[in-house]
């Protein structure tokens, strides 16, 4: 089992950014970075510590997706972890769906987002990478390990800091 730990101050910063309106994109996306540690035979953790917003100019108009971003923004995200390849760095694409309760990846998400993962795995082969989807009060995650690039795992998300929540 992989558990993603997200400090509440970083979570607040992410939510604030993702909720900002964009000129034409219907939703915003970003990248959140962390470190991976395999603790025991049945539990590993991803420790998130940094968020990078996708710049306004890096969104591209696309009728099929609520938010489409250019390749430069993805390369920038990969560079963050590539510079420290010796570390078990992690990259997660993150976005929100505008409702309360447990979210689920849309068909567009399932088609459009997993192709990001191979590049992440190449950039930081010692870490795990994936996708995080937030709602107003919940979240889910899918994680890909370098050892199983075709088999994503569902992961729990733990908010920790000013308050504590487990989303599993």
């Amino acid at each position: 089992m992989i558990e993603i730990r997200l400090p509440t101050d970083l979570y607040a910063h992410i939510v604030e950014d993702l909720q900002k309106p964009h000129e034409f994109a219907l939703e915003r996306v970003g990248f959140v970075f962390g470190k991976f540690d395999e603790l025991t035979s049945d539990k590993s953790v991803v420790l998130l510590h940094q968020y990078t917003a996708v710049a306004d100019d890096d969104y591209i108009e696309n009728d099929n997706y609520a938010a489409a971003i250019n390749s430069e923004s993805i390369v920038k995200a990969m560079q963050v972890v590539r510079v420290k390849r010796a570390e078990p760095g992690c990259v997660f694409h993150i976005h929100t769906h505008e409702h309360k309760g447990r979210p689920s990846f849309s068909r567009q998400d399932q088609q459009g987002l997993p192709p990001l993962i191979p590049g992440f795995l190449r950039s930081a082969p010692k870490g795990v990478h994936g996708l995080i989807l937030l709602s107003h009060n919940n979240g889910i995650a899918q994680v890909w390990r370098p050892t199983a690039p075709d088999r994503p795992e569902s992961s729990s998300i733990v908010l920790t800091g000013k308050y504590m929540r487990v989303w599993s």
Binding site: L10, G34, K35, F36, L47, H49, Q50, E87, P88
Partner: peptide, 9 residues
């Protein structure tokens, strides 16, 4: 600091 997480490499 926020980035000081995980195993010490």
């Amino acid at each position: 600091p926020p980035e000081a997480v995980g195993p010490v490499i």
